[in-house]
Amino acid sequence: MLNKLVNNAEEAISDIHDNATIMLGRFRLCGIPQNTITALVKKGVKNLTCISNNAGVDDFGIGLMLKTRQVKKMIASYVGENAEFERQLLSGELEVELIPQGTLATRCLAAGYGMPAIFTPAGVGTEVADGKEIRTFDGKQYLLEHAFKSDFAIVKAWKGDTHGNLIFRATSRNFNPLMAMAGKITIAEVEELVPAGELDPDMIHTPGIYVNRIFKGVGYEKRIEQVTVTPRAN
């Protein structure tokens, strides 16, 4: 019987090893697989290459693994608001590859769609283009960018079932469904886990075929970086 259920984050990451390449879903602090990150910190795997849109803040998200010096290389599009990251970057302790956000997303998509590469205009004429093949289509230049190859993808979903089908919520979807398609092994942690058959097939964002392991996360702390509100008049 098809069952991708694991008990917890520790079990889900039991074969993540030193020097692995892992992708982590999120945009800023939204949609972070926090149970799995905590387990990776506890396990102490080292020399990781992390592919993620951001690097977290100092005490949340990937920031936790930077603090423990588990990350050898970071591939991201935006890394502001993290003092420890900036320190490691400027001192040369951490290798960083900054790439355009759309390129990051589409290189995940290509991996999940079984395509080796994409052409994108983002970065033409900039240092991002250094050493990359350029092709001209209809008079416009495009960079050849390769699909990501990642040992593991770790994502966070709102709801999931025991077949690995996933549903994301609001803007915490972001990179999660893309990375879910792009790992050799994909681990999903979910807020709500249900038996297969309970989710409406029309509502599934990530079909379970892409997901190898799923577990119900605990203690979700939904951290907000910048609370902006409309005050009630009175």
Binding site: R28, C30, T171, I224, E225, Q226, V227, T228
Partner: peptide, 18 residues
């Protein structure tokens, strides 16, 4: 921006504001 009681951590803009 949401009213204070409507703030949703899963609903932010690209500038990370709710």
């Amino acid at each position: 921006f949401p009213y204070p009681e409507e703030v949703d951590a899963d609903l932010i803009n690209a500038g990370k504001q709710t």
